[in-house]
């Protein structure tokens, strides 16, 4: 119960154009004030519950993303913010873009838009809260994500 009342989020910028990032940060500032839901932006993954990912994946940051995901303790929820994080968006088809975040880690909720409005992101966070709640009751554990092999070597 208490978990959904004060979820801490970690914001991971993968391959984003900054548009979604500044909207995620705008959510935390006085006008939209995500703190009224108990949401706190935290720098370290080891204390986070919700992972907010913006931007698509490329060959260099895929390891960073996987590393941060594995460090977040269970139960955890992944929120993909923006068109790029969901599918690759306008950059789908660029040579260095693999695709949406769900190509590498399991995603629980998607927020569409380029860029999504802060209200939409808040909606996404609230939707993620109920998933977080049911995950903690069902004691579902996130699986450790291992790469399929051909995306990137470990020393990248």
């Amino acid at each position: 119960m208490s978990l959904a009342k004060s979820p801490w989020i970690i914001h991971v910028n993968c391959n984003s154009c900054n548009g979604c990032d500044i909207e995620v940060v705008a959510c935390l500032t006085p006008l939209y004030d995500a703190e009224r839901f108990g949401v706190l932006n935290i720098g370290t993954p080891k204390q986070a519950d919700i992972m907010v990912v913006t931007g698509s994946i490329n060959y260099k940051n895929v390891n960073v993303l996987k590393n941060i995901y594995n460090q977040i303790p269970d139960p955890k929820v992944v929120l993909a913010v923006g068109a790029c994080a969901s599918t690759g968006g306008i950059f789908h088809g660029c040579y260095n873009v693999i695709g949406g975040v769900d190509q590498v880690i399991p995603v629980d909720a998607y927020v569409p838009g380029c860029c999504p409005r802060p209200e939409a992101i808040l909606d996404g966070v609230v939707a993620a809260l109920s998933i977080l709640e049911s995950k903690s009751q069902g004691k579902i554990k996130g699986k450790e994500v291992k790469l399929k092999g051909n995306e990137v070597p470990s020393n990248a």
Binding site: K60, Y95, N96, E151
Partner: peptide, 12 residues
């Protein structure tokens, strides 16, 4: 600089 050993190769 940008690419990893696994990325697509030049010319890009």
């Amino acid at each position: 600089l940008y690419l990893t050993p696994n990325s697509p190769k030049a010319p890009l």
